[in-house]
Design a protein around this nucleic acid. Structure first.
Lengths: 349, 349
DNA sequence: TTGTACGCGTTATCAG
DNA sequence: CTGATAACGCGTACAA
């Protein structure tokens, strides 16, 4: 017979009742003595004795049992599209750190940019009574946000906007980021610039596309005529395929990509086509994700504030958790152009 | 007044009692009808009616309430040292996928290779009644494993061994991996090979160091005389500092690194010293983490099976969850050498 | 200041 | 096959 280890031979963890019996007081008193918020309601001496017994018995509060009553769990869910994309880990880490300081644990999950999966995860998180949710995965049509609202779970968006949403949001000024890119390329002499756009429904993709077109116009270039190909996902493979399509079409000396991950695929496609990044075709990225300074040639890209984004989002969420729903602000961080060697004046040919 | 949204105006989610009332049966019957495992104990007709009502009322099981009784939560905790290290996300993703198929949610957390933090997280996970734990963070002296045993939580180790541990473990044959590296370097003509070792207490670090020495000896080289510097962490920065120390010491034409992350720092240090990777000093990594094929020069490294490791660990854990503690196996996967351009015959000088 | 009594949503164990 | 009842561990009005 397979007896559950936890129940049988193992010394099942001490409960508040055990502590009460041992300390010679009532369970409620123990609860009050051990809860920082209610400690004042109890005698100094009793509090000390209870604390001592609890310590000795190795008592740990059961988040579950507490949550059953309070409907809170001191935990926060963080949803990202794909942890394998190096943009997200730094954001998550920074948020996690800030939330931990405030006493919250964080649970991270991948959504694969799949709305169904995203909705399922939100439901599961809700079932675990997360106190708040941080979505780095929100698409412009995410059902997830409605679910959050239905359950009344405070939610903030990170690195993704949802137009018209009332949720706290932390993003970057992508239009300005693209303007920096185009100004740089224009300054190098490029006049025929292509855009490798991100997947549909993702706000960074559409914002950067808009920024691309606006910046071209601002420089007196024909935004309508500029080659644009949309990548199926923010992945290396999708970037390669999109770049192949762009190459077939031709008619450009530089390509401004919606994101660094795509650039890896762009490099792959250009290498396969026998073209040199920088010399033959200039390439720019977006995000300045880790390690792109070490790829060859080092990528000119737009730096976003990964850690700051995570911290701001955490603060926004924490504010909302205490104030009960005021944090409906949008924080827009400023990006910065980092010039490396993937951009150069256009080839003569 | 700040009324908690969840309680007041929001339609608090339907409970099993609501469904029971609506369906005209007892709550226990609802429980049985909706639980796949106990559905057989109930009439087909009743089951159907209950299911219909539950659907209509939007009933969702409360993991917490259920866990309070069953002491299970259908969730698994995954602990990694640092999600920013690209080795881990693919492992986590693969494990997550396999576990999700089996109906488990996964919670990921970073430990920062800090035993105290690791212990705290394990406790919190235990408080959330995770059914199992996957540790990619275990150091050779981790207290975390004892905590797991005390709580009776099934635990497996991934990408880390703990000597003498009885836990299921999935690792690679690091000794063989190092042997492949040294054979490759030796074949190129290198005779003075240095090792940039990983941090103390980490099994991959000590295994690879042992493998390094054993392989040197096997090739008739003096293992004792070989320069070895220990990096403070598996990070780019620590790699740079360790490499600087190694350069001061000198006396080598190639350096075998314990891991790819360190190689980024090695590249930084060599660049700062005006040395060319490959031509002046050959460099090898370990892990074949994403993107190292695109750094300059592309890194010769040992490929490990990231996804397979995650899947195996998940299977091991699942087996243990159903059988109740048999999975005390150690799975050793085989690594593979990937030769790129960071290695070349030693410079003449 | 402390104890009593009850509820949170579900499952296990009996009876019927 | 179904209903009643008692847990699970904790928080919290209310009473003492």
């Amino acid at each position: 017979m397979s007896s559950r280890r936890r129940s049988a031979d193992q010394p099942s963890r001490a409960t508040i009742t055990d502590v009460a019996r041992e300390a010679g007081v009532h369970a409620s008193t123990v609860s009050r003595a051990l809860n920082p918020a209610t400690r004042g309601m109890v005698t100094e001496a009793v509090a000390a004795r209870v604390a001592e017994v609890a310590e000795r018995l190795g008592w740990r509060p059961s988040t579950l049992a507490a949550g059953l009553r309070t409907r809170r769990s001191r935990s926060i869910g963080i949803l990202v599209p794909d942890l394998v994309n190096p943009v997200f880990p730094p954001i998550v880490r920074a948020a996690e750190e800030r939330l931990a300081e405030a006493g919250y644990v964080t649970f991270v999950a991948n959504t694969d940019t799949d709305p169904t999966r995203e909705a399922m995860i939100v439901e599961r998180m809700a079932a675990h009574l997360v106190d708040g949710l941080m979505l780095a995965s929100a698409t412009e049509t995410s059902r997830a946000l409605q679910i959050c609202e239905r359950f009344g779970i405070p939610t903030v968006l990170v690195n993704r906007r949802q137009p018209g949403s009332r949720h706290g949001t932390v993003v970057h000024d992508d239009l300005r980021g693209m303007a920096l890119v185009i100004a740089h390329l224009h300054g190098l002499g490029h006049r025929r610039i292509a855009h490798l756009a991100g997947p549909p429904g993702v706000s960074t993709a559409s914002d950067r596309l808009r920024g691309f077109r606006a910046a071209l116009t601002a420089h007196g270039l024909d935004a309508e005529a500029a080659p644009v190909v949309i990548a199926a996902a923010y992945s290396r493979e999708a970037g390669r395929r999109a770049m192949e399509a762009l190459l077939e079409r031709g008619g450009f000396t530089a390509v401004a990509s919606a994101n660094d991950m795509l650039c890896l695929g762009i490099y792959d496609a250009l290498e396969a086509a026998g073209l040199a990044v920088g010399r033959d075709i200039s390439v720019t990225g977006f995000n300045d994700m880790p390690f792109v300074d070490r790829i060859h040639p080092p990528l000119t890209t737009v730096r976003i504030q990964h850690a700051e984004m995570g911290r701001c989002a955490a603060d926004l969420l924490l504010a909302e958790l205490v104030s009960g729903g005021q944090g409906e602000r949008e924080i827009v961080l400023q990006p910065e152009l980092v010039v490396r060697s993937s951009t150069a004046p256009p080839a003569r040919s």
